[in-house]
Amino acid sequence: MIKLGADSVEMREMSNDDIFSSRLKLLIIMIKAYLKDCPLGNYRKQAIIENANQVFCHSLQLVSESSSLKDHGIDVQTDIVSRETISAEHMFHQRVQLLSVMAKAIAENRSMSSFRKKSITDNLNKICETLIFNFQVRDVDFLKVA
């Protein structure tokens, strides 16, 4: 028997944040695979659309929870550092939502010019910088076939 997943001391039920983080990483992998010309079968396209929808909704929910807290006067910190953090978080979620839209466009066969591909790559890189996530498609051979 092989064991995968968390170390025994770190085992726990998966939280909403675990799922969001994992789905976002999956979305990044899906788009990187597309940019590396990995094939997209019908089920892969379906999985991309489903994942993009989930990430988009979860990101919207996180943004709305955050602004709802502010509206109720909770955790209102008005110093410059806090405002910069809030702004960075807001921008991160805007980028994530944009990535979701881009992923859906890919799965729906919308036309992809070189400029669109460049903007997808730029957005992807910014998100990966924030997450410190460095996935290489070349490490996963099965993504190159469908």
Binding site: M1, K3, L4, G5, A6
Partner: peptide, 18 residues
């Protein structure tokens, strides 16, 4: 055949497929 300790990651599932 395998034990998946939660929380599982995308990479764990890639290893399952491999």
């Amino acid at each position: 055949d395998a034990f998946l300790a939660k929380p599982v990651t995308v990479n764990d599932l890639f290893i399952v497929v491999e």
